[in-house]
Nucleic acid binder design. Structure first.
Length: 362
RNA sequence: GCCCUCAUCGUCUAACGGUUAGGACAGUAGAUUCUCAUUCUAUAAAUCGGAGUUCGAUUCUCCGUGAGGGCACCA
């Protein structure tokens, strides 16, 4: 009795006195209805009133039902008890409630949660699937930990009631309830997500970290050489885990362990070579290494320290240039661990190659 | 244009109507470590504006302003 046909489409009829008015939005005259306001008892927003004041299409002239209609039919069929959705649907809810009424069904409990807005770098307005950084898939591809993402997201528009931020998912589930959800929209902060991800990454058991790292490297061009030796791989990942902020940094962070063709950071080189007498330090190390004990970090450290003491210098005088020659950067695990893992031969050849390169350039 | 929602540091957020307005991320400055990162310490940073209610408003009411959303034979 509430549906009628017009222009080939089926419309849902609103009850009330009718009048015509020019609609500035649609640039045409439309028929409005003086209808009572729908009262929605939203679990998050409280009492929200809105008058649905126009008939609306439920079946298009091509015979297809429209979204709102299908939505309500589905939810009735599936005996949905709670509708929890974004605030962007709050205004549509009056329409939905009228449809429930039309079917003679009591509407479910509604809860309209705040939206996630774009961060300033992304632009303005609500985040939607087209926005970069809006898809969970994207973070998966970047090897973010799922629990870090869930944890971060749970804190947009909700909090556990105290200052805790890092919480296991089970704890979030235990504490979460609809009425304690905030009503204001939240801007997405990728930096905070990254931080959360790092915190989780740091506390992962080695085996989990190894599994994540292995998955990651399988997608990299260097996969074969990196994954060739399990023990070697394991050792290097153990060095990297406490130092990196995300799995995706792994390739760049550990590249020099797997190839002799690693890049040398020009800026770092300039800086390191400008201080003290790095060439002399290199030569001294080259001379010392053949007789050094590479069996442990401590023994490598001892060897370098002895050398430094003999020349009345510090460990740091050797560390910087050795790191540059052997890794091409100024960042990484301890130089002693790098020496030990790479082994005498490779360390020696890299030091010699680097020194030769410097001398040739002069 | 009409309608709906929201409003505390840059960002995410705490604070029975009474607090030096708290925490976290980001920032800054130090400390530690062989580098880098971590960690630690310190520091700066907010109640959108105006009326009202009250002995007292971040908190309650109203009006502005701002932000977001919705107004289709899209979903």
């Amino acid at each position: 009795g509430r549906a009628y046909e017009k222009d080939g489409a089926v419309w849902f009829k609103m009850l009330g006195e009718r009048y015509k008015v020019y609609d500035d939005h649609r640039k045409k005259e439309v028929e409005k209805v003086k209808a009572d306001a729908v009262v929605i008892n939203d679990q998050i927003r409280g009492k929200v009133e809105r008058a649905e004041d126009e008939d609306f299409v439920i079946f298009r002239s091509d015979g297809n039902p429209v979204f709102h209609f299908v939505n309500v039919v589905d939810d009735i069929t599936m005996k949905i008890s709670h509708i929890i959705r974004g605030e962007d649907h709050l205004s549509n809810t009056s329409k939905h409630v009228r449809l429930y009424e039309g079917f003679g069904v009591t509407p479910p409990v509604f809860a309209h949660i705040p939206l996630i807005l774009k961060s300033p770098e992304m632009g303005q307005g609500k985040m939607s699937k087209r926005d970069k950084g809006a898809l969970i898939e994207e973070y998966r591809q970047r090897y973010f930990l799922p629990e870090a993402i869930v944890n971060y997201l749970s804190l947009l528009g909700w909090n556990p009631g105290d200052d805790r931020e890092k919480m296991p998912i089970a704890e979030i589930v235990r504490l979460f309830d609809l009425p304690s959800v905030n009503q204001s929209n939240a801007k997405f902060d990728g930096k905070k997500l990254s931080h959360m991800n790092m915190v989780y990454l740091l506390e992962q058991p080695v085996d989990r970290f190894l599994a994540l790292a292995r998955n990651y490297f399988q997608t990299q061009a260097t996969a074969q050489s990196v994954l060739a030796n399990e023990d070697y791989f394991r050792e290097i990942m153990a060095l990297a885990q406490p130092k990196i902020k995300g799995i995706e940094e792994l390739a760049a962070y550990t590249g020099y362990f797997f190839t002799e063709e690693f890049p040398i950071d020009a800026k770092v080189k300039e800086k390191v070579m400008a201080k003290g007498d790095p060439k002399a330090r290199l030569a001294e190390m080259i001379a010392m290494i053949p007789t050094a004990d590479f069996s442990s970090d401590a023994s490598v450290e001892e060897a370098i320290k002895q050398l430094a003491t003999a020349k009345v210098l510090g460990f740091g005088d050797y560390q910087a240039v050795a790191r540059l020659a052997v890794t091409g950067t100024n960042a990484g695990p301890s130089i002693t661990a790098i020496f030990r893992v790479l082994g005498k031969e490779r360390v020696l050849s890299r030091l010699q190659k680097f020194l030769a390169g410097v001398e040739e350039a002069e």
